[in-house]
C-alpha cells in the first residue's frame, strides 16, 4: 500500500494509471457505440497503426514470428489517412459485411505503464473483441497492444503508435471491420 502524501511519485503514478485506463476504456466504448469519427479524434495525425501477421516458427526463432512493417505484408500497417478512409466506408451504410451493422464489445484489460518520458507514455494492454452479427455470426479477436500515447490538452491523450499483437495465424473471420 502506498501511503498517500508520503510518496508523491507513487501517487502520480496511480493517477496516471487511472487516466490511462479511463482513456483506453473510452476508446473501446466509442468503437462499440459506433462513434467511429470520435474514435479517430483520439489518434495522433502521425499515428502508425500496425497489426503484423504472426507465423508459426521454430522455438527461439522469434525474430521471424511477426511480419515486418518495413518489408512484408501486414494485416494493418497504415496512417490516419487510410484509417479515415476505412471509417468513411463504414459510414456509407452500404459496406455489406457491416450492413446490417455488427454488435461489437471491446473489453480492455491488463493496462500496464511501461515507460514515461515527458509527455509520452508507453502503455501495454490486452483486448478481447466479440462480434455478434445477423442471427448467428460470431467472431472473436484476442490479443494485446503496445501503445505509445502522448498527452493531449483536448482528449487527454492521443495514440501515436499502436502495435496490435493478435493471437491468430490464418485470419479465421472472413473480414475485419473493427479496430483494436
Amino acid at each position: 500500500m502506498v501511503e498517500i502524501g508520503s510518496d508523491r511519485a507513487s501517487l502520480e503514478r496511480l493517477i496516471l494509471q487511472q487516466e490511462l485506463e479511463k482513456f483506453l476504456y473510452r476508446e473501446a466504448r466509442l468503437l462499440d457505440e459506433r462513434r467511429l469519427e470520435e474514435w479517430l479524434d483520439l489518434l495522433a495525425e502521425e499515428i502508425h497503426y500496425w497489426m503484423p501477421m504472426r507465423r508459426n516458427v521454430k522455438f527461439g526463432d522469434w525474430d521471424r514470428e511477426f511480419t515486418s512493417a518495413e518489408t512484408e505484408i501486414n494485416w494493418f500497417n497504415e496512417g490516419k489517412e487510410i484509417l479515415e478512409g476505412r471509417i468513411r466506408q463504414l459510414n456509407t451504410g452500404v459496406h455489406w459485411p457491416e450492413e446490417p451493422v455488427s454488435r461489437y464489445e471491446h473489453i480492455v484489460t491488463n493496462v500496464e505503464i511501461m515507460d514515461v518520458t515527458g509527455d509520452e507514455i508507453r502503455v501495454n494492454s490486452k483486448f478481447f473483441c466479440y462480434q455478434n452479427r445477423l442471427q448467428d455470426e460470431v467472431n472473436t479477436w484476442v490479443g494485446r497492444r503496445e501503445d505509445l500515447l502522448r498527452r493531449d490538452a483536448e482528449t487527454g491523450f492521443k495514440v501515436v503508435k499502436r502495435k496490435i499483437i493478435l493471437a491468430q495465424n490464418v485470419m479465421l473471420p472472413k473480414v475485419v471491420n473493427t479496430f483494436f
Binding site: 518489408t71 512484408e72 505484408i73 501486414n74 494485416w75 494493418f76 500497417n77 497504415e78 487510410i82 478512409g85 476505412r86 466506408q89 459496406h95 455489406w96 459485411p97 485470419m171 473471420p173 472472413k174 473480414v175 475485419v176 471491420n177
Partner: peptide, 28 residues
C-alpha cells in the same frame, strides 16, 4: 516503389482490405 505497392496490397486485399472485404459478405 516497393513500399507503395506493398501498402496498396495491404489496404486493398483480403479480409482487412477495404475493397475485397466487400466481396466476402456476398461470397459467404
Amino acid at each position: 516503389v516497393k513500399d507503395a505497392v506493398r501498402h496498396y496490397s495491404e489496404r486493398f486485399n483480403g479480409p482487412i482490405g477495404f475493397f475485397e472485404s466487400d466481396d466476402m459478405e456476398n461470397w459467404n
